[in-house]
Design a protein around this nucleic acid. Sequence first.
DNA 1: GATGAATGAGCGTTCATTCAT
DNA 2: GATGAATGAACGCTCATTCAT
Lengths: 210, 210, 210, 210
Amino acid sequence: MRSPRRPQRARKLPRQARSQATVGAILDATVQILDRQGLDAATTTRIAEVAGVSVGSLYQYFSHRDAILNALQEREFERALELMRAVLARDHLARHPRDTLTAVMQGLASLYRSAPGLHRVLAIEGLRVARADRVHAFDARVLAIIRQFLRATGAPLRRPRLEAAAFVAYQSVRATMLARLLSGEPSLDEDSLVEELVDLVLRYLIAGDA
Amino acid sequence: MRSPRRPQRARKLPRQARSQATVGAILDATVQILDRQGLDAATTTRIAEVAGVSVGSLYQYFSHRDAILNALQEREFERALELMRAVLARDHLARHPRDTLTAVMQGLASLYRSAPGLHRVLAIEGLRVARADRVHAFDARVLAIIRQFLRATGAPLRRPRLEAAAFVAYQSVRATMLARLLSGEPSLDEDSLVEELVDLVLRYLIAGDA
Amino acid sequence: MRSPRRPQRARKLPRQARSQATVGAILDATVQILDRQGLDAATTTRIAEVAGVSVGSLYQYFSHRDAILNALQEREFERALELMRAVLARDHLARHPRDTLTAVMQGLASLYRSAPGLHRVLAIEGLRVARADRVHAFDARVLAIIRQFLRATGAPLRRPRLEAAAFVAYQSVRATMLARLLSGEPSLDEDSLVEELVDLVLRYLIAGDA
Amino acid sequence: MRSPRRPQRARKLPRQARSQATVGAILDATVQILDRQGLDAATTTRIAEVAGVSVGSLYQYFSHRDAILNALQEREFERALELMRAVLARDHLARHPRDTLTAVMQGLASLYRSAPGLHRVLAIEGLRVARADRVHAFDARVLAIIRQFLRATGAPLRRPRLEAAAFVAYQSVRATMLARLLSGEPSLDEDSLVEELVDLVLRYLIAGDA
DNA sequence: GATGAATGAGCGTTCATTCAT
DNA sequence: GATGAATGAACGCTCATTCAT
């Protein structure tokens, strides 16, 4: 996409019900387009068209095109965090770490599966310099959750550098899932992938797990 | 005025000394721009400008803008493969797999370190649909090398699904290194990263490795 | 940056008053440029400039530059056909064929006279391969009208090959008028030309007409 | 084609044998390209390539691209005039005008047939403003020949305005032949076309010819 | 507020022409 | 003379953004 002519002022926050609906429609339209046709198809005109509003309205709620992608990214970030929190909150201490990990990874896999095209675009765009900070912030939150889980788990940890370990484990899982998503016809079925990743992480992190 | 005719094949190969210099200048300029300002800044006009040539010259050697990126990608691909081959060729059978793995990863880390911005862009662009095939082809070659290494190693393998294991291991290493590269100020020094990754892979792949 | 996507269908039809005005301005500007400076001067930038709009507006209503020329061509085609139909509809059976033919040719001559430069360009462009189909379609419609006229006329026809005769007659008239148009200072006044052409066609087509 | 940056000085005339050969090769190459691929394919680079010389050499003999087309046009003009002169010179006074006319038209038809693509391009380009003068000059020479023939012929002429008559007859023949050339699949075979045109012209020009 | 026609900077690309070798 | 690498003005076209209605 072209680097945009940046506007000078921020837009007002949507407060009323109708506004919320419009914002929602715009985000949903963008998701649909990204998922089916990719980033290049997500022009402001097309988004407005699919959302059933005018471009003018679009700019009433988003100061520039990238703001839409940012909002989307944020939405998916929250969704992923929520998923992790929900799984970990379910009395995971009483269960074997393997079960907890498996549940988390199945959740992530289903998240990706629900809109592969969208997550592909977000992953790519997430790597762009402009959006790097947002991704780092998200990563930090994920890592905090992981560390918290590791500390809370009764299992004996192998790794002295907890922070490094969480980083490596997280990136490995994230990237492998994404790579499978990006390969046209995955040679590995989802369940097997989850199994492999659980094993990878367990053996890496937890002593004596064989 | 003229109906546009997309050229299908590569332009003439540079034979003379001056031509070689021009091609080199274009590639170098592109690397520099990608490394410092990212992909969007790498317009044909800007590349030509930095290379100190005219746009016309650029098109004398590259059929279209993307061909420059492709050439660059190919160059880095070959470099990475060459590095892996070189390390694995060095009597690795006589050494402990840990040493071999460490050597490979140190090589990759230094490759990334040499031009972080470039590798960031190549990694990102490698995810785009248009270039997905090239990346898959590269991945397949890497996976073949890894599998060959695993088979040749005397060490007892833990994983029944060799192909899946190679995929998971490769993506984990690749992504973690890249993620560290992308984070502005890495919290993990390079040696520690290599150590962690070697450990990750060994425990995942090789039975009884502790 | 972006892979170019050639639009296949026409742009949105102009509905509002302002839109209509813009389309009109674009067509008028194009006619003016073609008439005065020829086809090569009719760049999108120049057309927009003369029309007093931006290039963007131009592409809001025409999918590509050639679409403007096509629209212009179509407009003139329809105008010419309408003229022929109108003249032939005027109780021509009751009149001598010479009068009918004269009326038709006077109409065509005045059509050409109204914008010689435009018709010159359209005639030339009509010869280009890209637009040949459109011209052939127009020619076929004209020939059908001519054949219908010849059949309806009570006059005894000299020519056994009606189709060939219509073709020869039509091309002769068309080309001679055009040639006169193209010569800077016509040596033949319009009335004389019409007279000559009527005579040419009558003697060629109609038996005993002397 | 793009309107060229016009050079300032004329080129030296080719005097030596090698020069003549180069000029010939360039013209032949241009004919071949025009005939097979049309005007847009006739770039200076391509012409030089087909001619087996360098672009530099091309510019040694032709001051600019259009000069090549001009030379080609001139060559075809001379060829056509030569053909007419040759036929008319063959004791045509002793023969019936119909035979003479038939011979001329057969000659023209075979000229066109020998390289339809070339003549299509020349016809189109000949109409462009830039080259209009050259065409008018050629037309004038043709008309002179025609008038001379008409005067020399013993046959009684119908038309008082000899100049106008020559013009009408010439344009009719030229355009009809060209139109047949331009229509993809001519519905009229060449012999029939010649027959029709001879009849058209004879009845138009010569009194009592039935 | 909502609309959507209008804007125009900027992109990738071409090719006639030049000139150092 | 010949070469062909280099030039760069100019083209068609896109789309994020604005603002009169």
